[in-house]
Amino acid sequence: MTLIQHGFCIFGRGIGFPRAAWLCGAAVAALGALGCGTDTTGTGGNSTGGATGCEPGTELCGGASDCGADPASHAGEATYYDFADGSGNCSFDPSPGDLMIGAMNHTDYADSAACGACVQLKGPNAEILIRIVDRCPECAPGDIDLSPEAFAKIAELSAGRVPITWHYTACDVDGPIRYHWKEGSNQWWTAVQIRNHRHPIASVEYKADDGSYRSVARESYNYFVEPNGMGPGPYSLRVTDVFGQVLEDTNIEFIEAGDSPGAGQFPACAK
């Protein structure tokens, strides 16, 4: 494993009782800082990775220069939406076995930067961990629209709307990150999504024929899209999380509408 340093941070949707349909949304503001250890195990392509801190003083890092700082706290209200199934604006597949999920308010959704992030949320009756899978366009900043299953753990469903506080936290994932290739992708128009990531994703780059890495723009539906295509593959890809931690993978196979495993995972975080 090789340590690669990037000082990279990004910036960062509520009603929903039940919530209306979703649309595409804006990059994660005030993602809470975590504390980083080392865990880059996995199987797949060849990978290198490492850990650094965020830009000092940014809202993302809670004003801290490393990911060992206290997470930035948010306050708002929780509602719930009846059709929550794990899919939504983040373009993830339905996850009937995991419905501890939520839709982030438009502001904090930040053009899909919050997609796949995990949130520690405290309500009137309990504290829960959820994963962000959707955008709530009508929600106020700080609000999160929950699945009924998640809402029922913090309050009675009959309450409809309750005050909450929350912060971003590391996701409890197993194995390496996965590259999911969008249906319709090809060597001339290529769209890839990062799945199974411990921390929110800040950027994706691919190695071009000239050996340079080229940044890929992120769309509000949570795919990184190269409109001129990345070529036929296999690919060398570089993925950076919001703490500046980098994973580099080589020999990543293109599988239309399918997944290609990486070889590593972003480091775990100290409590």
Rank of each mutant, 00 (worst) to 15 (best):
C171F: 13
P124G: 11
K271G: 12
T190D: 04
D145H: 07
H106G: 13
N125Y: 04
W22H: 11
C171L: 01
G233A: 05
Q193M: 07
E256R: 12
Y221I: 10
F83D: 14
V133E: 14
A268G: 13
A257C: 05
I154P: 03
A126M: 03
W188K: 12
C115F: 11
P141Y: 02
D145K: 02
V239T: 08
D172K: 14
Q120T: 05
C171K: 12
I177Y: 03
N228V: 11
G102M: 08
F92N: 02
G231R: 11
I252L: 12
G45Q: 06
L157E: 08
R238V: 02
C115P: 06
E253C: 08
R218A: 10
V216D: 03
L23N: 08
D172H: 06
G116W: 04
D172S: 14
E183T: 07
G88P: 06
G160E: 08
L146V: 05
T38G: 13
D111Q: 06
H74G: 04
R198C: 01
N89H: 15
A202D: 04
D70E: 09
D259W: 14
S65K: 01
N222T: 11
A257N: 15
P18T: 07
C61A: 09
F243H: 13
P148A: 13
Y223M: 04
A155Y: 03
E59H: 05
I10R: 00
S65I: 02
G12D: 07
C67P: 01
D210T: 11
A29M: 04
R13H: 13
P124L: 04
R198K: 09
G25L: 03
E156F: 15
A33Q: 03
S203Q: 15
Y80M: 05
V162C: 06
K207R: 15
P56E: 13
C61Y: 05
S65H: 00
I132E: 07
V119C: 02
E253P: 13
P148R: 15
T190K: 05
S203Y: 09
A103C: 08
Y223N: 00
G184Q: 12
E226P: 07
C269I: 13
L247Y: 04
P94L: 15
T58V: 12
G211W: 08
E59V: 09
C136F: 08
E253M: 15
G175Y: 07
R19K: 10
W181I: 01
R214D: 07
E253D: 15
V162N: 03
D210S: 07
T58E: 10
G116R: 02
N89Y: 01
G262T: 14
C9S: 14
A217T: 15
S87D: 14
D210F: 13
L23I: 13
A103S: 14
C118K: 01
R135G: 10
F224T: 07
A72S: 08
H6A: 13
A155Q: 03
H6I: 09
R238S: 02
E256G: 14
G44S: 10
F11M: 10
S215R: 10
I154R: 03
C115K: 15
K182E: 15
F151N: 03
D93F: 12
A20W: 12
F17V: 06
A191Q: 04
C61D: 00
K207G: 03
G88K: 06
Y109G: 01
L34D: 01
E149Q: 05
R161M: 02
